[in-house]
Design a protein around this nucleic acid. Structure first.
Ligand SMILES: [Mn+2]
Ligand SMILES: [Mn+2]
Ligand SMILES: [Mn+2]
Ligand SMILES: [Mn+2]
Lengths: 220, 220
DNA sequence: TATAAAATTTAGTCTTGCCTAAATTATTGT
DNA sequence: ACAATAATTTAGGCAAGACTAAATTTTATA
């Protein structure tokens, strides 16, 4: 059985929150999903007791995905990222507008639809934010990527992706020319506030940690 | 508030069943929606007591749409038909494949998405089955159309539309070349079984009532 | 190491939309 | 007119997925 829209959203968030390696906490999930923590506990318990279980869960210890759960999560993420790519390419959406639409469509498109848009787009590797698109057999490609916040003076590289769906941030970055495939160089670093001064296309900008932690770089 | 997916499907079916003028019965609705009659009664009572009411209802008398209900129905129908048109045009779906996909997408696309596909398609008047697409301000255009089953020997005309979503029928009609905009002529009529012999592109076919009642003609 | 604060879980409730079984109302054939 | 049949409604239940309030557990702090 295909998981419900609700469950698909839980699994997707759990995937994202556990990418770092550590389990996802009830509260983090509640925040990301805009659902009260008590309700999240309920759903977590349900997902852990499905057969096969979609998540691994021990009281108060947070959750991780089982391989069944991971597969279901990657399915949704593939839909989401293909849809975003497709909306931008064929309907002229801008990269800050697509997320909400894809968030709803991802749950209802058929596998046939997925194949058709993937083929029409030429089986793209990344979505409009530079995020990797899981393959048709539901493997997430590997990526050698560093958050911009980890770079220091004189380091440089190419922007690969922007994490997160904050439309305001995306519009801001767009104005500064900070989009995927752009080359940047770190000019300066302020140790106390973690601000980075970077150079992009002859211009310099000072960016705070809330921005630099969302931008991912391929170092050069 | 936007009606739920369930309610949207009820309103759409009620619209279709009441196009003839007579109210839609509980049983007809139950059959069309694949929902048990008892459940339909429950939903009907709910829709009739919303404020504003979406349907008009008197016990045992069937239902009709109020103007609010009709507007909501036309909204869904517009989505459905634009989506079908778009899936055929941009993703190469055939006319017998699109219905199911549109049936799910119609409930989740945004008004922005609707505007974008309408514009991208050049504001089409009809969907791939020849059905009229409600306008952006939610009026259903008028159509001077006759079911093929009402034509008799020597009458002729152009196929405007095929009613209903039966994929097998659509594939069959496709093979015979009976698609919208095709000219046909009635060669013979059998009064007992209501079979019609028609000529299409030099070929003749004998069609029963279950087929001819689904094909709508502009007489010439 | 004892509290205080924060995170998490439990318990109980609500809404939506469906179901079955039983009761009621309408229609039909004689 | 009246029984049989068909259509519809009522009554009672269930599952999903959310919520609030209260209890519990963990973690942080003094
Ligand atoms: Mn898929
Ligand atoms: Mn979603
Ligand atoms: Mn539908
Ligand atoms: Mn609309």
């Amino acid at each position: 059985m295909k998981p419900s829209t609700s469950i698909q959203d839980y699994l997707k968030r759990i995937y994202e929150l556990t990418e770092s390696g550590s389990p996802a906490s009830t509260n983090d999930l509640a925040r990301e999903l805009n659902i009260k923590p008590a309700s999240v506990t309920g759903m977590i318990q349900k997902l852990a007791s499905e057969k096969p279980a979609l998540i691994e869960y021990q009281k108060h210890q947070g959750v991780t995905l089982t391989s069944a759960g991971k597969k279901a999560a990657l399915e949704v993420i593939r839909h989401h990222r293909l849809l975003e790519t497709w909306l931008v390419q064929t309907l002229g959406y801008s990269w800050d507008e697509v997320h909400e639409e894809a968030e709803k469509l991802e749950h209802v498109i058929s596998e046939d639809f997925e194949r058709r848009i993937a083929a029409a787009l030429g089986h793209p590797l990344r979505d409009p934010h530079g995020e990797l698109i899981p393959t048709a057999d539901l493997k997430m490609p590997l990526d050698d990527t560093t958050p911009l916040s980890a770079l220091r003076k004189n380091q440089s590289g190419k922007i690969l992706s922007i994490k997160g769906a904050d439309a305001d941030l995306l519009r801001y970055l767009d104005e500064l020319g900070l989009t995927p495939n752009t080359m940047i160089e770190v000019i300066d670093y302020s140790p106390f506030d973690h601000n980075l001064t970077i150079k992009v296309e002859k211009k310099t900008h000072v960016l705070g940690l809330s921005v630099t932690s969302k931008i991912f770089i391929e170092e050069s």
